[in-house]
């Protein structure tokens, strides 16, 4: 079983849901990303999503766009990211999923990418601009790495059925009709969508986009298998960048704190 499947199985046995924070790799530095991953794990993260920065992040709102920019300022690339995951693996076995745009991956080479993932211990890939219909080649190449499908609120029943049948690792239910970013509340349609997906597959379903408060996490956990939070964490990170470089420990701590606050409803 993959690390992702094992994690969900364990949580399900305990009647718990996964907390999945998103961090932009290299924001603000690769060294700090490593520390933040470990800190997030200590504060209750079950799976980590690491962003691959891209010049044109179509699915992202302003907060994650800015995180990508900070990372690209020092030209973070996939090679750096794989090296980082390798280092993290010496200290942690937390499932790691990379999230990035298809051009980064296409440019790196699909086969080479899958090999690198397997070699260093990346467990899954989320590629928002590689929908069903375009992802077949990547799926065919991948054995151990889960290619995680995204389902949108407006996906047709026919597509959801097909997506569910081909799903690996977990299904990413996109909770907004829009881009990433903090939102006031979780839309009512999300629950129905997750239930529709769950009626079609036993693959766990995690909800992301717009999940930004402990109340949201609590609500999502009542019907899904996991909650994914990106912008709210990055916003905190951003607000505390001024602590660097003097008070590194305090900076790392502040990100741990928000992770801990967000996971509190799950324990």
């Amino acid at each position: 079983m993959s690390r992702i499947a094992t994690t969900f199985a364990r949580l399900q046995d305990q009647g718990q849901q996964a907390f999945i924070p998103f961090l932009m790799t290299g924001d603000p530095t690769l060294e700090l990303t490593k520390e933040l991953v470990l800190e997030a794990e200590r504060n209750g993260a079950d799976i980590i999503e690491l962003g691959i920065p891209f010049s044109n992040p179509l699915a992202d709102g302003p907060t994650i766009q800015r995180a990508g920019k900070r990372s690209l300022a020092h030209r973070t690339n996939l090679k750096d990211i794989f090296k980082l995951v390798k280092e993290i693996r010496t200290e942690s076995q937390i499932p790691i999923v990379l999230m990035g745009y298809f051009n980064s991956i296409f440019n790196y080479g699909l086969e080479r990418l899958i090999n690198s993932c397997e070699e260093v211990g990346v467990d899954g890939l989320i590629i928002p601009d590689l929908p069903m219909g375009e992802d077949e080649e990547l799926r065919a190449l991948s054995n151990e790495v889960d290619i995680i499908s995204l389902v949108a609120l407006n996906s047709s029943p026919k597509r959801i059925k097909e997506l569910a049948e081909n799903s690996q690792g977990f299904i990413y239910a996109v909770a907004t009709l829009g881009t990433t970013g903090e939102r006031g509340e979780v839309s009512k349609e999300v629950k129905a969508k997750v239930e529709e997906i769950k009626s079609l597959t036993s693959t766990p379903v995690a909800v992301g986009f717009g999940i930004s408060k402990p109340e949201h996490v609590k609500e999502v956990a009542s019907f899904a298998d996991g909650a994914i939070v990106g912008s709210a964490i990055i916003k905190r990170l951003e607000d505390n960048l001024e602590l660097l470089p003097e008070s590194e420990a305090e900076f790392i701590n502040s990100v741990g704190e928000i992770v801990s606050t967000l996971t509190s409803p799950l324990n």
């Binding site: 179509l58 699915a59 298809f102 928002p128 601009d129 590689l130 929908p131 069903m132 219909g133 375009e134 995204l150 389902v151 949108a152 609120l153 407006n154 996906s155 047709s156 597509r159 996109v174 009709l177 829009g178």
Partner: peptide
């Protein structure tokens, strides 16, 4: 499929797929 040889396609977030369809 919107392909011109190997070029073209629909590399968009799932959310946009229904609108394209």
């Amino acid at each position: 499929k919107g392909l011109f040889g190997e070029f073209g396609g629909k590399y968009v977030p799932e959310l946009i797929i229904p609108a394209l369809e």
